[in-house]
Design a binder for these strands. Sequence first.
DNA 1: CTGAAAGCGCTTACAG
DNA 2: CTGAAAGCGCTTACAG
Lengths: 353, 353
Amino acid sequence: MKSGAQPAQITEGYGAYGMEKDEKKNITIADVAEALGVSKTTVSRAISGKGRIGRGTRERVLTYIQEHDYKPNAIAKGLAQSKTYNLCVTMPGNYEVVDWNYFQECLFGIQEMAETAGYDILMTMGRRNDISSLERIVANHKVDGVIVMRTLLEDAQLEFLQQRDIPFVTTGSTNYEGVVQVDHNHRSACRELTSLLLMRGLTRIALVGEDEGYVVTQSRLDGFRDAYEQAGRTVDEELLYLNPDNRMMVGRVVQEILGQRVDCILCMDDAVTSRVLRALRERRVRVPEDVRVASFYDSMILQDNVPSITSLSFDSRELGRTACRELLDLIEGKPVEDRTLLSYEIVLKDSTK
Amino acid sequence: MKSGAQPAQITEGYGAYGMEKDEKKNITIADVAEALGVSKTTVSRAISGKGRIGRGTRERVLTYIQEHDYKPNAIAKGLAQSKTYNLCVTMPGNYEVVDWNYFQECLFGIQEMAETAGYDILMTMGRRNDISSLERIVANHKVDGVIVMRTLLEDAQLEFLQQRDIPFVTTGSTNYEGVVQVDHNHRSACRELTSLLLMRGLTRIALVGEDEGYVVTQSRLDGFRDAYEQAGRTVDEELLYLNPDNRMMVGRVVQEILGQRVDCILCMDDAVTSRVLRALRERRVRVPEDVRVASFYDSMILQDNVPSITSLSFDSRELGRTACRELLDLIEGKPVEDRTLLSYEIVLKDSTK
DNA sequence: CTGAAAGCGCTTACAG
DNA sequence: CTGAAAGCGCTTACAG
């Protein structure tokens, strides 16, 4: 390395200028090879651990790159292997998504797993069924696989990925054939919670949701029905409030429900619960004295509510971890289950006392 | 292209098997060049628009790649240019983060801007001052620059990026020298809101926060003080509740505040507001009749509150867009402002009536 | 066990 | 205006 004070004549490559902060020029495999008097092949093998190589040689290389803080250029490595070591995660980008805590946890799990395998996360958000962004990423060969974080009943993402034969998994369930999906067992969870309420003698239970075409809504409803069947009862269809536009008129819906003299309001998720609670408060209806309330999903938005709300609880981080693991397996050509269902917890609180 | 029904003899490269769905083998610049009887150089120039090239030739190439749906391999392009066309966005990964809506909006803005420039977003989350994940991404040459979404007073990310001379910007302010940052003008916003309350004759205002070492907390406090100064009043230091552990004991804090006979509680952000409101409800203190409440930040968690809460409002998507634009400029070597402050709105609602 | 060489799919001086 | 060639930093048959 030249002493920075030489009087000019900086003609070839990097002169004093380029070297200002630390050595900017990144050290490459060729530099290592030259310094050690071995071939690039050997260095590559020492690092990757693939192919035969002498124990001594490997150690020499390893300690050298350690000391000189050599880091392989993932891009070049990718090019040579026709891989990117990137995973794409698609998130819903519409405003309606309230349970970001779910996504955060899930993402965290994904990243944890990806990191241990040397992969990074490329993120994309699109509005409902707008896949232009995903298309671009795939077309540009930027990722090795994708994790779809929210699926629709009719899902353009899945159709696109399937047709292009890109490895992918979904978090959350889908009805599409042959899609690798990992989800919490919502149906079973909803069945159990409903059963519990039924066993407590709550017979007139209203179910409130805002069907936006997500598959999970269907699973929840199925679970709800399962519980009734198991108990030898029949669901009162009059007490099912699942219109897509309930969001707008939650006040009217709650009014109607109260007119039906129910003893419990079961909400599909926490956004709904939050709005229902608000409507109840406005009408000075007490929980749980006048009516019980429970939710099929817990998130942070209800954590400070008075009274505390009975709900189902899911470990989203584990969901992310598992989904990522499956995707990696898929990419590596290992066999994977089409459907993986994770466990859940039921958390009983004041709202159903 | 072979007709799929040929009786075997699949020796070289991709046979019928590899071709199952569409043509799997990606078409490259070399294919285009060969098909058109021109050089790869020419094709490259036609696409990039750089260098001299005949009008006719360019058109031929362009229509060909259009028809055959050729998409350049971003990885290879990156390698050749020592670029990645990836931007890293770092998010806080700790559980405490409640305002995910902010991040969602911000991310959306970033992606919007990045996309138009042909960049993608690599995401990373780490716990407070854990930069291992960021280090890996940088070491592996996976990104051209980074956007730091939340800065701490002592921020390992910034120090690392600065020392490595990586182009980066922050959303939100920082006290670090020479860091390109874009933020909403929190100080000015807080000053205005406080002034408004003061002018309404609310003189005993308590300020509640949970100082977690974020810079924005300081700006808010500064704005609060500015308003008093402007009004020729002095801040009653007894009414400042900014302990880091207020979160745990919000009940006690509120109790104490009520003992001080304040007429307004001003909260640093919505997480705090949410907890304060809860404490008030538990004590049957009415808002705004018994005490007014306002927040220095609005997010979704309060949107359904009764009464509606007076607060400041910021366009986070624009923040993201602007930050991304600055980072791109930085990467391209264009001059950029060190500090950009965006505007805000004050939204008066029932809680301060 | 080790190395020379070709290749991954682009870009970019350099020379016509 | 166009092209041959070298190069980006790796990997990987192939041959010793």
